[in-house]
Design a binder for these strands. Structure first.
Lengths: 153, 153
DNA sequence: TTAATGCCTATAAATTCAGTCGGATATTAG
DNA sequence: CTAATATCCGACTGAATTTATAGGCATTAA
């Protein structure tokens, strides 16, 4: 049920880019240091996120990365789907990455039934939450004087 | 975000045992055939589920498996946690399998914040749903004359 | 022109996944 | 007691995935 470390890195990097959203680009090195992400690995990841259209880059001396779209137009679901594939716990209930499973009667499988609910809740959250939302939360958490551990949307 | 095939097999096997819950034991072979699960692999899995205390076995000629507890006392969460570890998408928001992540400030991480919500929903469903619930759904689905594809709890 | 930066490909170690194999052990039927 | 039948158990394996690292190429600003 877990995301890969790669996806975690991607999300952290995107969050940083979201918080610095503007005309300026940010160097990989800077993100890497700020977020404790291996530089060369992050290079791969950001490059990959370009194919998704989430970020864009400038090469050369003053090069770096920035978001390709405003953060409110980048949903968590789109990122995770791109990096991890299905949001569903089993692919036979995935809408975007459906694959038939080996069970004798898929249509009447009770496991499927439960997993659909799980998928539904995960999708509901991840399709609703944008990078902008996460930036806002980040700023709220940053501003909090006392350590915070829970909150609502 | 996906379960391993091994866990899928385990759930399918448990469901079968749940539907046949009683004094009788069921042979691995029978479950394997009914559910299209490789026999030797299933052997491993069921044996493993014994350690969890979900099933018990009898060896020898009239041997086989059955549930070790009534199906209403076996939650989906307990099974998945045992087989997969954390239900949370990132281990820094897991209650049962917490691990610190490499991000600079975990307490104020916006990603964590969202992932906690996801975990919450997943846990809510999986801790609530028991094997008995799944058996009931299975019987309902079985009884349905027309193909069904959606339902509520 | 040069130094900084991203781009691209290859490689590799470690881990996980999805099994398979073979025999040990327990149980029952005869 | 013995043979047949089942689970138990540990080792092994091949393939895929994950998590990187290394090194040179291409591009750009100054």
């Amino acid at each position: 049920m877990k995301l890969s470390l790669r996806s975690e890195y991607a999300l952290r990097a995107l969050l940083v880019l979201g918080l610095n959203y503007g005309d300026e680009v940010m160097r990989i090195q800077a993100i890497s240091e700020q977020q404790n992400i291996p530089r060369k690995f992050l290079e791969q990841i950001l490059n990959d996120l370009k194919s998704l259209g989430a970020v864009e880059s400038r090469r050369g001396v003053a090069g770096g990365y920035r978001l390709a779209r405003p953060p409110q137009h980048i949903t968590l679901a789109s990122i995770v789907r791109y990096l991890e594939g299905a949001l569903a716990p089993v692919s036979c209930v995935s809408e975007s990455f459906y694959e038939r499973c080996s069970c004798p009667n898929e249509a009447r499988c009770a496991i499927r039934s439960v997993m659909k609910e799980v998928r539904g809740e995960v999708v509901k959250i991840m399709e609703h939450v944008t990078l902008a939302d996460m930036c806002q939360r980040s700023r709220q958490l940053e501003g909090a004087t006392t350590p915070v551990d829970d909150y609502s949307i």
